[in-house]
Simulated scan of single mutants.
Amino acid sequence: MEAAGGEENPDVHGAAAVAAAAAAEPSVSRQRQPAMKPVWTLLEEAAQMKTEGNAFYREKNIRSAIGRYHRALLVLRGLDSEVMTSVKGFGPETPALTPEQETLLRNTQVDCYNNLAACLLQRKSVDYARVREYSLRVLQWRPSDVKALYRAGVATLEMGNAETAKQYLMQACREQPNDANVRKHLQRAEEKLSRELQKEKAMYRGMFSSGLKSSSGEGINQTNRAGEGV
């Protein structure tokens, strides 16, 4: 994904690389490293970056908005127990979060991934695979998130899988039955499935018709040979 200042991807294993590098340093050098910022400070910095991203999005500055959301996610990555468990033993231990801190971390992550998907859908050339990826990340934590269900459905439909898209959009419609956009894309998915079914039926009819003609031709030839025998 393109972001302000170059490409920033919250999905790269940056935390593991930094931690491994720190482990390779001599112990004296590690002692001279500055202490990790307090958890609340990092959470507030990430929340502030998300807010700045929202402001850029409202201004239609999609590039800068994407950059802010990515930076927020990179900050949060170092606090996420689900991520840091895989690099345990390298570098300083990540402090355990309180329930309140964990809630703020997840809420900020959900908002950033949702907003990144929204940003990508505003581009002329949409990366639907990435839209779907970000939306599915949200659904891991919030299975009933309407925005993520809707965007996952739209992206999956554009990627050619109408059946799965219909499932996402039907769930979004159950959560928010009066949303015109959800209903519009659900109708698109159903129409695509109907066209695919008609094509499949036509193909089988053609195969069946060809089989009948072949069988009929063989019968005529057999009859002619029998007549010749008489």
Rank of each mutant, 00 (worst) to 15 (best):
M1R: 08
M1Y: 15
G5K: 07
N9F: 06
G14P: 08
A16Q: 06
A19V: 07
A22C: 15
A22V: 15
A22T: 12
A22S: 14
A23G: 14
E25P: 15
P26R: 11
S27Q: 14
V28M: 13
V28C: 13
R30V: 06
R32V: 11
R32N: 14
R32A: 11
Q33P: 09
V39G: 07
L42N: 12
L43K: 02
E45F: 11
A46S: 14
Q48N: 11
E52H: 13
E52T: 14
N54A: 06
F56I: 05
F56E: 04
N61S: 02
R63H: 13
A65F: 02
I66A: 04
R68Q: 04
R68F: 01
Y69S: 00
Y69F: 07
Y69P: 01
H70G: 15
R71H: 11
A72R: 02
L73Q: 06
V75Q: 11
R77W: 14
R77S: 10
G78T: 04
G78R: 02
L79P: 00
E82S: 06
E82D: 06
V83G: 05
T85H: 09
S86N: 08
G89H: 00
G89S: 02
E93S: 09
A96V: 01
T98E: 08
T98P: 07
T98R: 04
T98K: 05
P99R: 02
Q101C: 03
L105F: 05
R106A: 14
N107R: 12
Q109M: 09
N115M: 02
A117W: 00
C119W: 00
L120W: 04
L120R: 05
L120M: 09
L121N: 04
Q122H: 10
A129Q: 11
R130C: 10
R137G: 08
V138I: 04
Q140N: 10
W141A: 06
S144K: 10
K147V: 00
A148P: 00
L149S: 02
R151F: 02
R151V: 00
R151G: 02
A152V: 10
V154W: 10
V154Q: 05
L157K: 02
E158C: 12
M159N: 07
M159L: 12
A162K: 01
A165H: 00
A165E: 01
K166N: 12
Q167H: 06
L169G: 03
Q171S: 04
Q171Y: 03
E175V: 01
E175F: 01
Q176C: 07
V182M: 03
R183C: 05
K184D: 11
L186E: 02
E190Y: 14
E190G: 09
K192M: 15
K199I: 13
A202Y: 07
M203D: 12
Y204Q: 12
G206T: 06
G206C: 06
S209Q: 12
S214R: 14
S215D: 14
G219M: 15
G219T: 13
I220R: 09
N221S: 11
G227F: 15
G229Y: 11
